[in-house]
């Protein structure tokens, strides 16, 4: 039971950390200043959430585990983040679509965790859901703006859907450590799909049918991208163990 909770908490921590790291790549490169600030603000929220999850996981693990050791010193195969969040930024369309697909899911997940049987996860969820509400709105607006925008922006959104859709089902496919969790994956998927359909309709975008769905991230089997992210993220602590400033 305790191990499942640790793994599940690490899954939440890794997912929010890796998405934060991906979004942070936009820092200084956003299409306009206000949106550069927006995406990095979202990064900061996600990083804060991941710190809360890591701190909780560290307290469950005990010994000398800390939020830093969990984020900086675990190997690729130990990371349990969703495959979706490690996918490259590519263009603004793919970045905002990735954020949209994730935030819509994250919102309903946090809603459930808030009422779940683990009080600390519930507390973190209660705090995080407020920020996530902003992320949902911001990313939904971008999907509509670009999908229902110019021919070029529409095409790019179609390409992004082509690229990312196959990673969405992983969110609703429980792995071993999720078997005992109180999350209702079926309800989660229904609510998520409902909202995605609504936004896609307004964005004149279509949901792919019968696409092959890729899973694996939650149990440590990642796409080739995660290794590169971690070598950036962990470089300093690997080179100068214990470095502080």
């Amino acid at each position: 039971m305790k191990y499942a909770l640790i793994d599940y908490t690490l899954h939440l921590a890794d997912t929010t950390l890796i998405l934060a790291q991906r979004n942070a790549e936009w820092c200084g490169h956003g299409p306009i200043l206000e949106q550069d600030i927006a995406i990095t603000n979202i990064t900061l929220d996600l990083l804060g959430q991941s710190r809360n999850f890591y701190q909780y996981a560290a307290s469950l693990i005990g010994h000398n585990a800390s939020e830093d050791s969990l984020a900086y010193l675990r190997k690729e195969r130990e990371f349990k983040n969703l495959l979706l969040v490690e996918q490259p930024n590519k263009d603004w369309g793919q970045t905002t679509l990735r954020q949209f697909l994730f935030s819509q899911f994250h919102f309903f997940l946090l809603e459930q965790l808030q009422k779940g049987n683990d009080t600390q996860l519930a507390a973190i969820a209660e705090k995080s859901i407020k920020e996530t509400t902003y992320h949902v709105r911001w990313s939904s607006e971008w999907v509509i703006r670009l999908g229902d925008g110019t021919e070029e922006s529409h095409q790019r959104m179609e390409n992004a859907i082509e690229e990312l859709w196959r990673y969405t089902d992983e969110m609703f496919t429980p792995v071993e450590y999720e078997n005992e969790s109180s999350v209702d994956f079926k309800e989660l998927k229904t609510k998520w799909l409902n909202n995605v359909k609504k936004v896609f309709a307004e964005a004149t975008l279509t949901i792919p049918e019968n696409e092959f769905m890729q899973t694996g991230g939650k149990s440590g089997v990642h796409t080739e991208h995660l290794g590169y992210i971690l070598s950036d993220l962990q470089y300093l602590q690997r080179t100068f163990p214990g470095a502080t400033w």
């Binding site: 600030i37 927006a38 603000n41 900061l44």
Partner: peptide, 9 residues
Amino acid sequence: RISEFGSTA
């Protein structure tokens, strides 16, 4: 409103 996100969170 210029932007929903500003100089701090």
